[in-house]
């Protein structure tokens, strides 16, 4: 579907354990650049664990242990020399619930830039404008930039969180059920936004909502009990799944 196929992330034999519990059992998967890849599956199947493995957020969970390799831009991010701060700037994350800091709208967007030492006034202003523009918030909020972000609606907050991430110009955006706290209208608009963003970013989204996966993604992976059952073009997964278990899940017989 895309002329030049480039795997921006290659996952090889990825195992994740939480203490003794095996959350991921040898996952092999490639993520293509400038595509939306959706990960579906029942609760507890490991899809969020997988997502967090891609920017090493599992490191923050006590007792979590990872084996295997994740190549991002050709380098294994689990190599001991990996600079986590740079990795997380390049592979960013949007969370389930909108979680702006209790700071002004402007400070939320520029937070990531400031922690990475980028503080030039003009530069911050330009990134602020571009990021809010990218999530279609600029017109709404341009006169309220110094207001507290907690005053915004849920949808605006989630857009702001995406803008906060885009300000860092990451290459990959990981989204962990980004619409689960939003109403259907807002969900639709966030999905439109994802579609716009894939021009410039690679998106990996975890979702409970199969229609959402079918609507927005180019590729879909089905996780079950820590295994990746099937991964392929979304169209194919939803019309002619190769695995019986995938078919059972997407037709609603299971899950």
């Amino acid at each position: 579907m895309i002329g030049t196929v480039k795997n921006i992330i290659e996952v090889k034999n990825l195992y994740v354990y939480y203490a003794k519990f095996q959350a991921l059992k040898g996952i092999n998967l490639n993520i293509q650049a400038n595509c939306i890849s959706a990960l579906i599956g029942p609760s507890g199947c490991g899809k969020s664990t997988f997502l967090r493995a891609l920017n090493r957020m599992n490191d923050l969970i006590e007792g979590a242990r990872t084996e295997g390799q994740v190549y991002f831009d050709g380098k294994n991010i689990y190599h001991p020399d990996t600079d986590l701060l740079t990795l997380r700037r390049r592979v960013g994350m949007v969370f389930q619930r909108p979680n702006p800091f209790p700071l002004s709208i402007e400070d939320n967007v520029t937070y990531g830039l400031k922690v990475h030492g980028l503080t030039a006034r003009n530069f911050l202003e330009e990134r602020l404008y571009r990021s809010l523009q990218a999530v279609n918030l600029w017109e709404e909020l341009k006169d309220r930039l110094d207001e507290n972000a907690l005053k915004l609606t849920g949808e605006q907050q989630q857009r702001l969180c995406i803008a906060r991430l885009l300000a860092l110009e990451p290459e990959v955006v990981l989204m962990d059920e980004p619409c689960s706290a939003l109403d259907p209208m807002a969900t639709g608009r966030i999905e439109d936004l994802m579609y716009e963003l894939k021009k410039d970013y690679t998106i990996v989204i975890v979702t409970h909502n199969m229609q959402q996966a079918a609507r927005v993604s180019d590729y879909t992976g089905y996780f079950l009990l820590g295994d990746l059952v099937e991964f392929g073009e979304t169209n194919q997964i939803f019309t002619s799944p190769q695995d019986k278990r995938t078919e059972d899940y997407i037709t609603g017989r299971f899950g």
């Binding site: 701060l85 997380r88 800091f101 209790p102 990531g112 922690v115």
Partner: peptide
């Protein structure tokens, strides 16, 4: 969640403490 977001944006622990945790 404040800490999680801060880390996910590539902050160090100290930046997270001084910029997010302590002000709150």
């Amino acid at each position: 969640s404040y800490r999680l977001v801060s880390f996910s944006l590539g902050s160090t622990r100290w930046q997270t403490v001084t910029k997010v945790v302590l002000p709150s």
